[in-house]
Design a protein around this nucleic acid. Sequence first.
DNA 1: TCTATTGGTTGGAGCGCTCCAATGCTGTAA
DNA 2: TTACAGCATTGGAGCGCTCCAACCAATAGA
Lengths: 333, 333
Amino acid sequence: MVRPTMEDVALRAGVSRALVSLVMRGSPKVSELRRSAVLKAAEELGYSPHAMARSLASRTSTVLGVMVSDLHNAFFAEVVDGIDEVAREQGFDIIINTGGRSPARERRALESLLSFRPAGLVLLSPVVPATAIGKAAEQLPVVLVARSSRVSTVDTVNDDGEVGARLAVDHLVSLGHKRIAHLDGGEGTQAGPRRRGYVAAMEAHGLAPQVVSSEYTDAAGARAIRSLIADDALPTAILSCNDFNAVGAISALEDAGLCVPQDVSVVGYDNTSLAALRHVSLTTIDQPRAEFGRLAADALLQRVREERTEPVRHLLNPSLVVRTTTAPPGGPR
Amino acid sequence: MVRPTMEDVALRAGVSRALVSLVMRGSPKVSELRRSAVLKAAEELGYSPHAMARSLASRTSTVLGVMVSDLHNAFFAEVVDGIDEVAREQGFDIIINTGGRSPARERRALESLLSFRPAGLVLLSPVVPATAIGKAAEQLPVVLVARSSRVSTVDTVNDDGEVGARLAVDHLVSLGHKRIAHLDGGEGTQAGPRRRGYVAAMEAHGLAPQVVSSEYTDAAGARAIRSLIADDALPTAILSCNDFNAVGAISALEDAGLCVPQDVSVVGYDNTSLAALRHVSLTTIDQPRAEFGRLAADALLQRVREERTEPVRHLLNPSLVVRTTTAPPGGPR
DNA sequence: TCTATTGGTTGGAGCGCTCCAATGCTGTAA
DNA sequence: TTACAGCATTGGAGCGCTCCAACCAATAGA
């Protein structure tokens, strides 16, 4: 249970501790003879460098901290993939922590991450107050994903929800729909831009917006549909605030004896793995998630290397994924 | 960008560095006067202890490393919740890393985690070879979740897949089914026990097992159903190897004009969030995921505190969750 | 009065490493 | 031969912290 140290390797290889350090860092100024002796000794002892001692001594770190607000959401997993890819390319490791969507837990996760003195921090859709983010940003470079900020030391990567909503509306309009309702995400992240994009797109087409208050869950989507039916206000097409909501909406429509897409078309948002299931096959708006991660890592590493001090604000374009829940109104031709 | 050290706090509070250290660790042998002075100074400077320096000096760690084989799978998120809960209770933090189901990436993630010298390691369904796990276990306590091991220094936490499969078969038999097929998980984790449990339960009921080769995806589930239909070998009930497979199976059945559960009953496995969607409402087998995490953390912390040297092998009982994809054979009564 | 005892406080050593100035050792030019 | 590069190699200081023995009142006991 006790790991060998550099000293042990040096002793075994018959060289100094400093020489072992050079070999471990791949320095070119070591003779081939010593290098192989050191590597052999390290191998035999099962030695690997102590990252903490290293970063303590060098006052640098090759670790990026990633705070995932919700591990349950596969959205973040793909962003992490993107971060990981870029980080690894550039010789950095990542450590992840999660806040479980609770500000208190998230704050603690942040503290924990900071206590490792990583080179930088990526916060995925954090729910902590902006002041906490600002404080962290005083200590190290910080990038926010799926959350905006006006702090000049913080970079951000977001999708353009207005564009996404417009894509969906344009698609439905091109199919011939005129009555298109939006099941709104309420207080949820990014619900605002999506709603604004929907309203703007409707008005641009000369159509009357119909915003129905809802939430990011399948139960809420179903509830919204039931209330629309009860009010006799069901449109020919629905733009849900996200995929879960859309699936709930579809099931409520089917419960009411309506067919999707023949009677009502439904569009989701996020293109989660759920949407791709053949059983669901949801037309939806895709966000370039891995790209989010890559851009976030790139931005962070630029700051880490002090190549840039001006903030960047990435706003990525989502895209439309047409599956089988949308069709022209009035049944199949 | 430069964080204050203990020295800075000591200077500002007019005490020694050692005294600050005592305060930071909540030692009782500090006068109230000094304690408040130190805390005030720390607050003013925005000081928080450097976890790495601390663990280096104390040769202990309050960090548990968690390797998640696949961040995309919400199964692990719930296990992590359980780990996090117990760890936090006992004053430990967790850092997560992911291997993305690739042995090479996972190995690297393991290395990275080890380089922080955590107090212990939880591996969630790792795909690295057993030797790599054994090597890690020489350096620190290791607990395996959703993977078994015979190494005596490694604790394991698993669900009893045989019991789960039997629960499903018993449920279907009690509904009156006699022809029940199992869509097999092939090489997938835990596919073996599930298959064995299915076969044993069928034989216990005096029924003929029908194992159909498949995989843990919805496409595979659909394929398996189509081949059963093509062979005119469709049973009255299906036990899928997991929920994804079950959803694929359902959609293929519906495509073929069959109704679930009137014509064919379907049972999944895992009780993912997918199964709970009203649109899916899948009868399935639930694993106590958070309990996995809690037990894993408990076992690990026992080893960390050297309270135990004998391995523990937790085998948890899954439970049946009846939703709407199962019914007596031959349509509704 | 003097010595123990106790509780609070401190300086110094050291955790495993990096960094740097200094050292030794070639080989080459004068 | 001496001088001087040029290069590989080394010891020591120090990163921010913990731990420990030592220390210093202040009080208690004899």
